[in-house]
């Protein structure tokens, strides 16, 4: 175990270095990759927020898309339908997804294991049905098209590079907050619940309340990701609320390593690049993609970060 000051220092340096490098990235990357990295950043945030539940609280939620999608819809409706400044629309939408997470969370907290997964899925599908059927408001399956990138406070965020910088800042700040939460006493309790919820209960802790807090945190930051995604795409459609879209952050967390804070980020980078590459490479991309997934799960069940950390540990301990 490294000593305490180091653990505090390291992340801050890492944070600043990656911020600087990523900030400069558009200078030497073609525009397409700027778009791709913008998407990876948003997907990373969505995955890390989902992983607060999956990896750090031990809850498998299939409904995270409800918060991502409802925030994307809310921000689009506010941008297109009102004269509110973008920042206001942004924070209102995030607030709405936090509220939605609180309400749905209250209903779901009693449930365990897979029952929890299916109940969250059912709730999120209700959101999907509303978006799909309330055509006069949401445009139905055609969605809301042409969402402009209005200035955020005084900053012009129109254009790929400017929007990339905006997303980068918001995502980095959000990730820093999530990191602090996971390292806080709250985060430690959550992990204790994950490892043994009965014992935690014995210790006199209200497991349900802690789980609910975790659910709201995940929903809120999922909402941040959704509010970033809508103007980025310029369109929102019910696809964003479909359960299959909930599977994506789970998959990314698992591939990256769900017991590591940075696991989902590693997963997002690899997931987006591999998918982009493989879908352009063959019409039968699903087969190769599926095969790759299967092999990864069979041979790297702890995800990429799990694999790496095991090797580092082995390296330190010397050969056995």
């Amino acid at each position: 175990m490294p000593s305490k000051p180091q653990t505090l220092q390291n992340p801050i340096i890492w944070f600043l270095v990656s911020l600087v490098i990523l900030w400069a990235a558009p200078l030497f990357l073609p525009t397409f990759y700027v778009y791709l990295i913008t998407e990876i950043l948003i997907v990373s945030l969505f995955a890390v927020s989902t992983n607060v539940l999956l990896g750090f609280t031990g809850l498998l939620s299939f409904g995270q898309v409800a918060f991502f999608g409802s925030s994307a819809y809310a921000v689009s409706l506010l941008i297109k339908g009102t004269s509110l400044p973008f920042a206001a629309s942004f924070f209102i939408s995030v607030g709405l997804s936090a509220l939605a997470a609180l309400i749905i969370g209250l209903f779901c907290m009693r449930l365990r294991a897979f029952y929890f997964a299916i109940l969250t899925l059912a709730f999120s599908q209700i959101f999907f049905v509303v978006a799909y059927k309330w055509t006069s408001l949401t445009g139905g399956d055609d969605g809301i098209v042409g969402i402009p990138k209005k200035p955020f406070f005084l900053f012009d965020i129109n254009g790929p590079d400017a929007y990339y910088h905006f997303v980068l800042l918001v995502v980095m700040v959000s990730l820093a907050l999530l990191y602090l939460i996971i390292r806080s006493p709250l985060g430690e309790v959550l992990q204790a619940i994950r490892d043994n919820s009965e014992r935690t209960e014995f210790l006199g802790l209200q497991v349900r309340n802690y789980r609910l807090a975790s659910f709201v945190i995940a929903g809120t930051f999922g909402g941040v990701a959704g509010a970033l995604f809508a103007p980025f795409q310029g369109i929102v459609t019910p696809e964003l609320l479909h359960w299959s879209h909930s599977a994506e952050p789970l998959m990314i967390s698992l591939l990256g390593g769900m017991y590591f804070f940075f696991g989902p980020i590693a997963g997002a980078v690899i997931f987006v690049f591999i998918k982009e590459w493989i879908t352009g490479f063959t019409e039968y991309w699903m087969f190769w993609y599926g095969l790759l997934l299967m092999l990864l799960i069979m041979y790297l069940p702890g995800g990429i970060m799990g694999f790496i950390s095991e090797h580092i540990r082995r390296g330190k301990d010397g050969p056995k």
């Binding site: 073609p30 397409f32 778009y35 795409q233 369109i235 696809e239 964003l240 982009e276 879908t279 991309w285």
Partner: peptide, 21 residues
């Protein structure tokens, strides 16, 4: 030729790829 997977978000990404890359 690119597979849009009937998903608008994929369609958008692939459209950008076609034009930019």
């Amino acid at each position: 030729q690119e597979d849009d997977q009937v998903k608008p978000s994929v369609g958008v990404r692939k459209f950008r790829k076609l034009v930019l890359e």
